[in-house]
């Protein structure tokens, strides 16, 4: 067992377009220790989202390897990749991406249902996560569209964490929130890192948000640079 929750080796993504090949990611090497917090920053079009989709196993790289919890993912088929996402990765999106036909509680339950847990187990996990995130019981029965942006993002964070992932990936997690709610959200993630030993990797273009993370890497023209 290595100390790393996530490792990328020579990660490369080339898109083939009508105008020719475009390198979105070139030879990206990164090692993220268990419990570490990493911010990946860079301007729009720098390759942040491509990098996130590769390490989140949502897209396949053209070359290189993504290792999560010691599992080399390049040889995995769709079912294996899905299994990895289900059990070892939690996603927090900029637009929250809650399922609109499910209540806040059901959104949090969703990954647990997919893992095949019994209702008893699900309820225990939900109690534990809502307590930890100080989620108000009242709004758990509301549908996403009835909640504020901050509330929706807390539900999204709960959904990302409830299955006990090895790593949580955030794609501009505060991008749609006002500055006060953004701060509250980042403080919450900090606190969860401290109490749960959460491994986090967040991509953002906002330096202020990046400053909450202990380690910052920059991505520019598809290449990763470690910030001193």
């Amino acid at each position: 067992m290595s100390d790393f929750a996530l490792e990328t080796i020579g990660l490369t993504k080339i898109y083939t377009t009508a105008g020719g090949d475009v390198s979105a990611l070139v030879d990206a090497d990164l090692k993220v220790k268990k419990g570490e917090q990493v911010a990946v920053i860079g301007p729009s079009g720098s390759g942040k989202s491509t990098f996130l989709s590769m390490i989140g196993l949502l897209d396949r790289p053209t070359g290189g390897e993504v290792i999560i919890d010691d599992v080399r993912t390049s040889k995995l088929r769709d079912r294996g990749l899905t299994e990895m996402r289900r059990k070892r990765i939690g996603f927090i999106f900029q637009q929250y991406n809650l399922i609109s036909t499910l209540t806040a509680r059901e959104n949090i339950q969703l990954p647990l249902y997919l893992q095949g847990m019994s209702l008893d187990e699900i309820n225990k996990k939900i109690s534990s996560i809502t307590e930890r995130l100080a989620l108000d019981e009242r709004f758990l029965e509301h549908f996403p569209q009835q909640l504020s942006g901050g509330q929706q993002q807390r539900v999204a964070i709960a959904r990302a964490l409830v299955g006990g992932p090895a790593i949580v990936l955030g794609d501009e997690p505060t991008g749609n929130l006002d500055s006060k709610t953004s701060e509250q959200t980042m403080e919450l993630l900090q606190e969860l890192n401290a109490t749960m030993g959460l491994t986090m990797l967040v991509v953002t273009h906002d330096m202020h948000i990046a400053e909450y993370m202990k380690r910052v890497v920059t991505i520019r023209d598809g290449r990763l640079y470690e910030n001193g």
Partner: peptide, 16 residues
């Protein structure tokens, strides 16, 4: 489509 993307991201198999 987006909901399908979310489902797949949080670990739904194609069959599901």
């Amino acid at each position: 489509t987006k909901e399908i993307g979310v489902m797949r991201a949080i670990g739904s198999y194609r069959g599901e």
